[in-house]
Amino acid sequence: MTAFTAPIADLKVALFATCFNDTMWPETPKAVVRLLERLGCRVEFPSAQTCCGQMMTNTGYAGEAVPLVRHFVDVFEDYDAVVAPSGSCVGSVRDQHPMIAHLAGDPGLASEVEGVRPKVYELSEFLVDVLGVTDVGAYFPHRVTYHPTCHSLRMLRVGDRPLQLLRAVEGIDLVELPGAEECCGFGGTFAMKNADVSVAMGTDKAAHVVETDAEVLVAGDNSCLAHIGGILGRQRTGIRTMHLAEILASTKEHPTW
């Protein structure tokens, strides 16, 4: 299914890097740029972009997220498509921005939100649904297991799109993760407010990752990966975590490993 009839190169595509990736994991949005350009897209990074406001909303401060939602629609409303390497942030835009506009009591903002949010795609959705590709020409000769993050799975319903993309990667040894659909225990501020339960969940997730004998744990959200990876690192498992974008961007000429 391709949502646009115009040639890919004519699409006005914006990268929403997300504030966490921008600040902590720049290699991920860089990989998105390389990948999308390789597939013939013209990607723009509107530098006025900041944050979707998810952290405030989910911690109980939805009012504080109002200016961020306003800013988000201002920055992105003129694009044909907005691509973000985070299921969680895209979930926030699609699921929570209407609620925040409603809370702000601003019908104008609500209608702007309605205009923008259907154009916001998580990376695997954009590749499979908009560009219509599953083989992105990637090369990654390592043993990999995939963790579907909760918001990509249950808010966005990306289904097996990330797996379709990974299966087409040349050289990859993709192994199934037991209990894959169970939450890793990150949950934003949950990781701090309920650190014991969060770690208990993350430890079980990490144990499943270890069971697979994978070298790399891949997911579509770096925040979840920071949590699982933090445990895998503390346990000295030697298992590396990587964002889906970085594996898909990897080629023989420019490996990301």
Binding site: N21, M24, P29, E44, F45, S47, V199, G230, I231, R234
Partner: peptide, 29 residues
Amino acid sequence: WTDARDVPTPPKETFRQWWAREHGDGTTT
């Protein structure tokens, strides 16, 4: 966080710094 989890190491350069270096302050590739 750190009782049971390592902390991700921050990068030397943010994405927007990299982008500005590569593309200027404009937006398109």
